[in-house]
């Protein structure tokens, strides 16, 4: 059973903690220790920043053939979400009829079970997205 691999990511997965480059101001999610734009100037200076969880659908798909652990969620909607802070991130959109999802749809992050290590292992929690109220 795997524990630390998931445990060490908990803050970003629970609370959308990313990083900001103090040199150019670009926000990254997940956190990075080097800004790809500023390189060495940013090393050791990246600052933590929390995303608001707001966003819009940048692209999406309805998954019918799953990776291990997602068998009973299919068909499920995967999306790339564009955030107002800058970074895009990948996550499921839930509580929605897949056919209603569209590019540009406003969504926000919610806290859900993402995966679990079999019946006896650790439950991994993190972000998914749901449509904003119409």
């Amino acid at each position: 059973m795997v524990v630390p691999r998931f445990w060490r990511e908990r803050r970003s997965r629970y609370s959308l903690i990313g990083t900001r480059c103090p040199v150019c101001g670009t926000v990254y999610f997940p956190p990075r220790s080097v800004c790809p734009k500023c390189g060495r100037k940013s090393v050791g200076k990246m600052e933590e920043v929390q995303l608001s969880g707001k966003g819009k659908v940048y692209s999406y798909t309805i998954v019918h053939q799953n990776v291990i652990g997602y068998k009973y969620q299919k068909p499920y909607v995967m999306a790339i979400i564009e955030t107002p802070e800058g970074p895009k991130l990948t996550g499921q959109i839930v509580d929605v009829e897949p056919e209603k999802v569209h590019i540009g749809m406003p969504v926000h992050a919610v806290f859900r079970r993402i995966a679990e290590d079999g019946k006896a292992g650790i439950i991994q929690y993190g972000y998914k997205f749901i449509p904003d109220e119409e």
Binding site: Q73, V94, V110, F111
Partner: peptide, 16 residues
């Protein structure tokens, strides 16, 4: 609860 909800996710959403 949806397939991916449990008492903990409900607690977090209520708290938020």
């Amino acid at each position: 609860p949806a397939y991916d909800e449990d008492a903990a996710t409900i607690a977090v959403e209520a708290l938020r």
